[in-house]
Design a protein around this nucleic acid. Structure first.
Lengths: 187, 187
DNA sequence: CAATAGATTGACTAATCACTCTATAAAAGT
DNA sequence: ACTTTTATAGAGTGATTAGTCAATCTATTG
């Protein structure tokens, strides 16, 4: 792992444990095994570090999610895969998931340029639009569906994260079914 | 408003705008119109201030929610009222709602004693237990219902907060219906 | 009214921290 | 081989900040 990544990895661990305030750049550098100066060679400011860490995690997550879908998947299968694999990713990458939330509810979120935020949600928005267009799901505002899906995901995650591994799967599955029932017309 | 409350009010505003790190105690004191020393007379540490602000907001919210229910309300009506009024409270108290989330996804949350956290969720848990016992809602784990309800609430709030006032009500209403459908047996 | 307790002030301090700067080493380019 | 660029180190710095303290002011009480 190169120094830049080493720094990001240490920053992640420390920010999640001690918060942005509670984590001096010196401590990050130390834990990453680099000097103070090196940290500022890669990241001009601490704020930059916070921001780039957020962006890199988001990108990693998106790449992971969309690597799981195959061309022959129908829209429902795609959405289900994105849902299910998000939970598994979050469970395997708890710190990263926590970090995303931490930034989301902090003033640092305003440092993320609108364009970057858009780019990251774009593919998800497209999925919803497609599902709406093909009448698979209800005709609710796209943003409402997007927001509700995200919060439902966080809800399921928050519950299963405290469960023993073997009890997680059924909850995750029925978690998806609940959402799906909510988004599709009742027959 | 006495000085203690003045300090809490200023802290709220500044913490939400600039974050915990970005808000020096001196700035809080200044904005509250008290001296530095006075702030530390009421709150031994900055951490204490963060913690007590959180607890006071949570208590205020709970008191508000349960003041809305009347003895003749059935369990469904009670749950609906708690749901709907939470959204209205959050819309009227955006900073307070934001602050709660901010603490929730920060390391400061670990400063809140377990007992206080329990006390605050207890009444909500009881509602769910009662609804389950009277077979009004599905027999899912209470904690799962609690978590899903909370995240659904946040989802609805996040959506309606950007809407013009007159478009909020129908979304909030159908937001409740969606949740209710999810939690009750399909007929 | 005297005495005690609590409230308030603001200057002060010890510590911390983000970031700079200079020096050197390594890599890349020509 | 020589020059330029990039990477790394780590001591140093100026600014900031949480929290202290001694002094004064303001109720409250016996």
């Amino acid at each position: 792992m190169d120094k830049r990544e080493q720094i990001l990895a240490s920053a992640l661990r420390l920010f999640v444990e001690f918060g942005f305030h509670g984590t001096p750049t010196s401590k990050i550098a130390k834990e990453a095994g680099v000097s103070n100066g090196t940290l500022f060679h890669y990241f001009a400011t601490k704020e930059d570090l916070i921001k780039e860490l957020y962006i890199s995690i988001k990108n990693e997550l998106n790449q992971f999610l969309f690597s799981k879908i195959t061309p022959q998947d129908g829209i429902e299968a795609v959405i289900k895969k994105v849902f299910i694999y998000f939970i598994y990713w979050a469970l395997e990458n708890r710190e990263k998931n926590h970090y995303i939330q931490q930034v989301l509810f902090s003033p640092h979120i305003f440092q993320i340029p609108e364009s970057v935020a858009m780019e990251q949600s774009q593919k998800h928005i497209q999925l919803i639009e497609e599902a709406k267009a093909t009448k698979v799901i209800k005709d609710l505002p796209t943003n409402l569906i997007y927001t509700l899906t995200n919060s439902h995901l966080m809800g399921i995650y928050n519950y299963v994260v405290n469960l023993p591994t073997d009890e997680q799967k059924p909850i995750i599955e029925s978690g998806f079914d609940m959402l799906w029932d909510m988004l599709t017309e009742q027959k």
